[in-house]
Design a protein around this nucleic acid. Structure first.
Length: 124
DNA sequence: GGTCTGACCAGGG
DNA sequence: ACCCTGGCCAGAC
């Protein structure tokens, strides 16, 4: 079981993000909360930063935005890409990189959460 | 080990 | 709406 030694925080972040449906988004703080690390919003961003330039993976990183309903990746140079990806999923993003959070934010329902407990974190 | 950092957040002026 | 501040916590050095 050597795989349990890896950073589980990172793994949880990615596992949760993979569940976000197309056309929906979650905030950094929300992700942190749902994986059991409330307040660790910045760490979520850090974990995603770890994806590096290899954004061609199966993690829909573009569906994670800040609590103001805006894109936070302009500072690392992938803002325009994120905006384009979101728009390609049907999300309306304005020129300032902001969108209607109330409309697009996704929350897993209780059943999904319960399912996630076993599907994502079997060790719990 | 301490110290600094950051794809954040909420609150106050 | 804008700017600033303090807090947050996992990583990197």
């Amino acid at each position: 079981m050597t795989e349990t030694i890896t950073s589980d925080f990172r793994d949880k972040v990615f596992a949760l993000i993979k569940r976000i449906p197309e056309g929906k988004v979650m905030t950094y703080g929300q992700v942190a909360l749902l994986i059991g690390s409330p307040g660790a919003a910045r760490q979520v961003g850090m974990a995603l930063r770890g994806l590096g330039d290899d954004l061609d993976n199966d993690i829909p990183w573009q569906r994670v935005i800040n609590a103001q309903g805006g894109i936070s990746t302009y500072k690392v140079g992938t803002g325009e890409l994120q905006k384009a990806l979101l728009e390609s999923e049907g999300v309306v993003v304005n020129t300032e990189g902001k969108m209607d959070l109330k409309k697009y934010q996704w929350w897993p329902d209780e059943e999904d959460k319960a399912h996630a407990q076993t599907a994502l974190f079997p060790e719990l």
